[in-house]
């Protein structure tokens, strides 16, 4: 009996957020004390597909920002974790990568804001991508550090012995082996960037309107229906990833 109650409670707790957001995204009026909104229609969703839709622009911008951040974080994470993997002080290098997370990205954003203004990167796309990169890259580094094991260096040594060039070694040995972990790192960094609000708001100064900023804007405008739609759009990519690979979601949560 207890088991069934817990199951029911757990299902309710986990599915209610999705249900509430779905209901709100298909409504327009919700006056107290009605439990459910008056009319259900597709009006809010249809707005997403109109050419002048602010939400669509935010969605597009969020995708581009997150893809850039994920690409550069994975690239730099891969190159630098390789360089650090042979160091005696590898443990200390990895500990250093936790610094931006422990010190809170938003607090760091406050401290970086002055430099963003001086360099002329505030309120710009590049400024937001750079700030998010400084947070995501250490995370990518942590993930990719676990790839460079003794096993991988044995493969490298073997290919050197057999006379392969550096490029051939990367293309035919390292890259195929690293593909899963590179994919994992890319998606993790994509999600961190996708979910970010504080840094984007601080460095972007509200000018770089990503999807998370749109959620806040709609809430401030008391437009809970569009806020619900924007929230659902935020949840779709991680849910798609969950469908394909549970590990991606779990590792992100472990660090972030």
């Amino acid at each position: 009996m207890l088991r069934r109650i817990v199951h029911f409670f757990l299902i309710a707790v986990i599915f209610l957020p999705v249900a509430v957001l779905l209901i709100l995204s298909f409504s327009e009026h919700w006056i107290f004390p009605d439990v459910l909104p008056e009319n259900f229609h597709r009006q809010t969703w249809l707005r997403l597909f109109s050419t002048e839709s602010e939400l669509r622009q935010s969605l597009g911008l969020s995708i581009v920002v997150s893809l850039c951040v994920a690409f550069f974080s994975t690239l730099m994470g891969c190159i630098l974790s390789r360089a650090v993997s042979t160091s005696r002080y590898k443990k200390y290098y990895i500990s250093l990568a936790y610094l931006p997370y422990i010190l809170s990205p938003v607090v760091l954003g406050v401290l970086w804001h002055y430099f963003a203004v001086v360099i002329g990167l505030n309120a710009s796309f590049i400024g937001v991508v750079s700030a998010q990169f400084l947070i995501c890259f250490p995370f990518g580094f942590i993930i990719l550090s676990s790839f460079w094991t003794r096993h991988i260096s044995n493969y490298e040594e073997l290919s050197i012995t057999l006379g392969s060039s550096e490029w051939f070694r990367f293309k035919k040995v390292i890259f195929p082996l690293a593909k899963p972990v590179l994919g994992l790192c890319f998606f993790q960094c994509f999600l961190i960037s996708w979910f970010d609000y504080g840094l984007t708001q601080l460095i972007g100064g509200g000018q770089v309107k990503t999807l998370t900023l749109s959620v806040f804007n709609f809430i401030n405008e008391a437009n809970i229906f569009l806020a619900a739609l924007a929230s659902l759009l935020l949840v779709i990519p991680p849910m798609t990833l969950l469908f394909f690979n549970k590990k991606i979601i779990l590792k992100r949560t472990l660090i972030h």
């Binding site: 757990l10 935020l234 549970k246 979601i249």
Partner: peptide, 28 residues
């Protein structure tokens, strides 16, 4: 097992918005 992974897909912003719509004075 899959059920427990689902909430991990929710960013803090979205979860806070859900709590606001459910537990506020005018919520569900």
């Amino acid at each position: 097992h899959r059920l427990l992974f689902l909430p991990l897909c929710f960013p803090a912003t979205v979860m806070a918005f859900y709590v606001m719509q459910t537990f506020s004075k005018s919520g569900f």
